[in-house]
């Protein structure tokens, strides 16, 4: 079942063409990695899917409905977003994660909202730091906090912009495992921008390679991530160790 369809999307920042005729579709429950060099349009693509910026041409369909037919709030209930950057403020971690529940309540958070916050904090191992201020967390803890915030809103589609940046090895693996588990157990669909090609290879069902705002390649990780594509897109010679699912730069 297709949950996400992008068709002919173009986007530009002034004269900078960030996305050029991007089309693909994603099935529910898939983990999709978007890879590509810096500035290739990964962040922009995620923002377009979340309705944060509007494409100049083309359309995005979530769950069969075009984005234009969602109110911002009803879209927020379905799509969760883990941004690459945010303005951290001395809010407590608990209040920060609770702010992710905003689309679900009208005036004040309900007991269920609070339950989801605790659950989300537990899933990233941060429940004991719930009373800390965001400004008093380490870079990796903050990254997990942002993921918890997105999880708290129980999205059907989770967009993650470099979710493993700033994380130590253990949490890189744990975050990716959590994402994989969520997709399998709750049918959540995850689209993540990644820089680590080995991780993309290990944890995704589908890989989209962006290059200068265009889809350069798309498909199963073993097909898409190969020496030729890496050289063409990154300009780097590398070897793919298929049995280990690892990429070694030469």
């Amino acid at each position: 079942m297709v949950i996400l369809e992008i068709s002919g999307v173009c986007f530009r920042y002034g004269s900078v063409e960030a996305l050029n005729d991007v089309s693909f579709s994603i099935d529910a429950g898939e983990v999709v990695s978007v890879i590509g060099p810096n500035g290739s349009g990964k962040t922009t693509l995620l923002k377009v899917i979340d309705g944060i910026v509007k494409p100049v041409r083309g359309a995005v369909y979530v769950d069969g409905r075009s984005l234009g037919r969602y109110s911002r709030r009803s879209l927020a209930k379905i799509v969760g977003y883990v941004p690459q950057r945010l303005n951290i403020q001395p809010l407590t971690l608990y209040d920060f994660v609770l702010s992710g529940r905003r689309p679900h309540y009208v005036l004040t958070p309900t007991a269920r909202d609070r339950e989801k916050v605790v659950e989300a904090l537990k899933s990233v191992d941060l429940l004991d730091k719930a009373d800390r201020k965001l400004t008093e967390l380490s870079g990796g803890e903050l990254q997990r906090a942002v993921i918890a915030r997105a999880l708290a809103s129980e999205p059907k589609v989770l967009l993650l912009d470099e979710p493993t940046a700033n994380l130590d090895l253990r949490y890189q693996v744990e975050v990716l495992e959590t994402i994989r588990k969520l997709t399998k157990s709750r049918g959540i669909t995850a689209v993540m921008a990644l820089h680590d090609l080995s991780q993309a290879m290990r944890y995704s069902d589908k890989v989209i390679v962006l290059h200068r705002g265009k889809v350069y390649a798309l498909g199963a990780p073993e097909e898409v991530i190969n020496e030729k594509v890496i050289e063409a897109v990154y300009g780097v010679r590398a070897t793919v160790l298929r049995d280990l699912k690892a990429i070694v730069v030469l």
């Binding site: 911002r72 969760g80 977003y81 941004p83 303005n87 209040d95 702010s99 309540y105």
Partner: peptide, 22 residues
């Protein structure tokens, strides 16, 4: 009433937008 939205604005326009506030 708008306090939760003020918190979102504090975190950034993108966050506010993705949590349902224009």
């Amino acid at each position: 009433v708008v306090a939760p939205d003020l918190d979102l604005m504090l975190l950034g326009d993108d966050i506010a937008s993705s949590s349902g506030v224009n």
